[in-house]
Design a protein around this nucleic acid. Structure first.
Lengths: 229, 229
DNA sequence: TCAAAAGTGTTCACCGTACACCCATGG
DNA sequence: CCATGGGTGTACGGTGAACACTTTTGA
């Protein structure tokens, strides 16, 4: 069959990743200092070109793995950016993904090797191209999503305390949330498993650790259960 | 400057449009019967290739204009689809957009020329490639969006009756909505202008016509006003 | 006078939100 | 024994949901 497409323009396609983490206090994003042109030396999102055998989410996962060493992370497509001169060298279409990772589990050598660094959301440097817009959009999406679906777990260690979770939500939504109301709401969702184990990291009394009940959670999700936080 | 990108793969990029309309009774989508290969004769979304000087939304608007003759329509990016073999001839990355138009205002000759036809959502033919997935996703998004923001206006004529609006919402959300509660809620949003004019199309008594107050609406939107329907 | 759609309020249950004190422990 | 963070319950107001009858007028 003869291709009917031969007169059409072709383009470079890339993905860029907004990588969120939480250090217990602040919501953070992982940025790299570019060691290649253009804009060498500038801060940027981690990105990469789409390859022939990949779909966009594969490319995003590959790029993310290259920087953090992590597999099987939560990735969500954010938006396809296409401004003609986004990249000064040549036109590149970029699909942005955002991801939530446990800040403690990534591979620190890889981070160093890529000259990457964690920055607080709300206080990070000017980025190249349209990456600032991507980040803004990702934060907005994360906020909205967080109040519909408790995806924040993915930013915490496997075992976490209620107050970590509480802090996380306050941080993401950038507002005070009443502790008792929050705990009551979370409990009513029935997606947490209370362990018979305490963390003594932050107090003498110790606070119970929880895990989230992945199966319960995903079943409810797939049944269209509406979380509302 | 030498391009550092020269070894990377390039791809064809396209847009596909899910075009929603409302005939007073049913939510509809506009599909075309392809008169070109591949899949000639099959039903499909209207689409087109991205050009060198366009961003994705330009391409979507162009494609939409080509089929309907309309300008300045509501367009929202849905998702970037990238399965490797979506198109059997050659790899094409496609960004899907959905749009809401007043079914009465489009150019009927263009529709004919493109062998296009309106189908009820929930009863339309098998589509080519991954277009069925695109449509499903668009419907889901439209539902969610409709209960957050009254975008449904865009599917109605400029002047419409309360019951048209009521029917529209019932249709989109595919469930019964109490008439009095609905009207009270809509009124409480303060984005409708009640005209001193009635429509006698559907009753002897006649029903008042409304317009939506675009400025009010957009101001509230940009102030982050949360609608919730 | 009747058929067919337009238009209009009230009540109740539940949920979101505000709010403050005791507990356990290590130092 | 005290300082620090952990853990817990109740009351109120507002919002969402259920519910039915009267009005208008052309045929």
């Amino acid at each position: 069959m003869i291709s009917s497409y031969e007169n059409e323009d072709k383009f470079l396609n890339a993905v860029d990743c907004i990588i969120f983490g939480f250090d217990g206090k602040n919501l953070k994003i992982l940025l790299i200092k570019r060691d290649f042109e253009p804009e060498k030396g500038q801060w940027s999102l981690m990105g990469g070109f789409l390859r022939n055998n990949e779909i966009f989410s594969d490319a995003a996962a590959r790029v993310l793995n290259k920087l953090t060493g992590l597999h099987d992370v939560y990735l969500e497509q954010l938006f396809a950016f296409s401004k003609v001169n986004r990249d000064p060298v040549e036109r590149i279409l970029s699909v942005a993904y955002y991801t939530l990772i446990d800040i403690n589990t990534h591979n620190k050598e890889l981070i160093q090797k890529n000259s990457a660094k964690w920055f607080n959301v709300g206080n990070f440097p000017e980025l190249i191209f349209d990456h600032n817009i991507m980040v803004e959009r990702a934060i907005k999406r994360l906020r909205r999503k967080t109040s519909i679906e408790p995806i924040g777990f993915k930013l915490l260690p496997r075992k976490f305390t209620m107050l970590q979770l509480h802090n996380l939500h306050e941080t993401i939504l950038n507002k005070k949330i009443d502790k008792r109301n929050f705990i009551a709401k979370i409990n009513s969702l029935n997606i947490l498993i209370k362990l018979h184990e305490k963390s003594f990291e932050s107090s003498k009394k110790g606070s119970f650790l929880y895990m989230y009940d992945k199966e319960e959670y995903e079943e409810k999700l797939s049944n269209g259960f509406t979380f509302k936080l």
